[in-house]
Each structure stands twice: as structure tokens, then as C-alpha cells.
Design a protein around this nucleic acid. Sequence first.
DNA 1: CGGGATGGTCAGGTTGATTGACCACCATCG
DNA 2: CGATGGTGGTCAATCAACCTGACCATCCCG
Lengths: 144, 144
Amino acid sequence: MSAADLGRSLLEGHRVLAAELVLSLEERGYPDLRAGHLAVFQHIDRRSGTRLTELASRARMTKQGMMLVVDDLEARGYVRRAADPEDARAKIVKLTAHGRRAAAEARRAVASLEARTKRVLGDRRYETLREALDQLTGGEGSVG
Amino acid sequence: MSAADLGRSLLEGHRVLAAELVLSLEERGYPDLRAGHLAVFQHIDRRSGTRLTELASRARMTKQGMMLVVDDLEARGYVRRAADPEDARAKIVKLTAHGRRAAAEARRAVASLEARTKRVLGDRRYETLREALDQLTGGEGSVG
DNA sequence: CGGGATGGTCAGGTTGATTGACCACCATCG
DNA sequence: CGATGGTGGTCAATCAACCTGACCATCCCG
């Protein structure tokens, strides 16, 4: 077991959780949702909507990355882009009715996954895992 | 903070460690090595070489995935494919002289990264992190 | 008004995998 | 000996989740 394996375990952990989430979403009647979509559902203002750039910064990804996700959700009818009356450059990403239902279900799926993960690891281990990851990633993006 | 964030933290952790590794490899004079290459350097029999399928299974990836890595390393002169005298279907992936030097350096880079990571997290947290990841991924690939 | 910053978009690339299809060859059963 | 199923390697296509760079319209500040 080496640091390289640790790196791969992290990746695999990511995949496992993402797959769980997709499965859970499927069971809840949303087979076309993927883990990445949650970045929107978790960070968007449910009523008023949120700008793309704001979504990106909340989800800590680039606006280009967020674009892909929003494009996808828009094509599937979960969100739409509306003009921002306060800034002609900006557009506001808003949930459609379908999107609001999906967001609610998605939040439940996330909560349930979190509960299951805690149950599997135990609360202590779960907390330590989060702490360790924050330390690994949170700093300046560097271990050394 | 939700389970979805946990998933993204895992991915980000993976990225951070991979980036550290690449950086360290660069500093050691191997700017063309990437984290994925270590799967070979860590699992190949240094003298006698190892079959592709065996490498894949040791590194827990598909043979197609291992192919890509080996193709890449071969193109860069780190390994070569030799016929297996015992099985005409098989080829043995062997380190070149260049590959042996790189593998040694790569092992040092990995050891150093591991040491630094332990220093940052503390031994206890590091161990718990590994345990938690094993539990998350190790089972049947399922949390529930 | 001029010029830099901001919001959104397009184009293209990267990493680390995946599934499916194939063929040559081995091993064994009859 | 010959069919048959499994194994080793390969090719092709795809995926997810990103990234950087370049751009343009618009905003805001001096």
C-alpha cells in the first residue's frame, strides 16, 4: 500500500459514491440525472434562480465546467436560462417545475447516501475522512 | 456539507495527489511520466517482466486500460514488449534500462509523497483515511 | 468616453477509465 | 486428430468530469 494506491482509492471512492447516487436517482424516477447535476441542484436558489458564474463559484468549478452541466440540464428540461433584468450580459439559471421536483428528490437521495455512508463508516471515521480530505485539498492545493 | 461534496472531495483529493506525484517526477528528471504510469512501475517484475493481463489484474484495472498505459510507456521507451516463450499468445512487458531507472525514481517519489501526506495528516488520520476508503470501495463496491 | 473587468460562450484538449468486438492461440474432451 | 471454450492481446468507440485559451458584449469606474 502506497501513496499511489491512496490516490487511486480516492478516485475509486468518488466513483462508488457517484454510482450510488445515480442508482438512487434512478430508483426515484430520474434515470437521466448524473452526479454532476447535483452541483446545480445543491447550489441554485430554488425560487429566484442563480447566475451561471455564481453557481460555478459555489460549486467550486470553472464556469466552463458549470456550462456543460447547465447545458445538459437545460436540454433535459430541468432548468432554463432567463435574461437577468439587472445585467444584460448575465443570464439567470432557473429551475423548471420538473427541475424543482427533481431537486427535491435529489436532495433526499444525497441525504440518504450520506446517512448510509455514515452508518457504514461510523460517525467518527466519517468525520475524520472529511477532515483528512479537507486538509489534503483545502490548503493551497498542495500537500508539501 | 453533504455526501455529494464528499464525492467531489474524493475526486479532488485524487487530483491533488496525482498532481504532486507528477511534479515530483518532473523534479526528478522525468517530465513525461504521469500518475497512471505508476501502475506499471509498481506492479511489474523488475527483472523478468510481467504480462499485460497480470499487470492489469495487479493494478485492478481492465486490460484495455493497462494497454493504454503500456502503449504510452513503450512509445516513451520505458518498457518494451517481448514474446513469451511459454505462450505464443502472450507478450511480456519488460522495463528497459531507462525504465528501470525511472521505476526506481518513481518509487522514491511515491515514498516521499506518502511521507509528506502522513506528516500533513498525522499518522492516525492517515490510517483512518485509508481504512475508510477501503471500506467505501473495498466491499462489493457498494455502500448500501 | 475609454479601458479594464465580468458574464457567458465556443473550441479543443486531458486524464482515467469503460464496453464491445475480434482474432490468434492454448488446453481439453472425446 | 478435431471441435470447443477460455485466455492474451488488440482495436475502436465512448464516457465523465474536468481544464485552458480565446472571444465578444456589456458593465463600471475614472
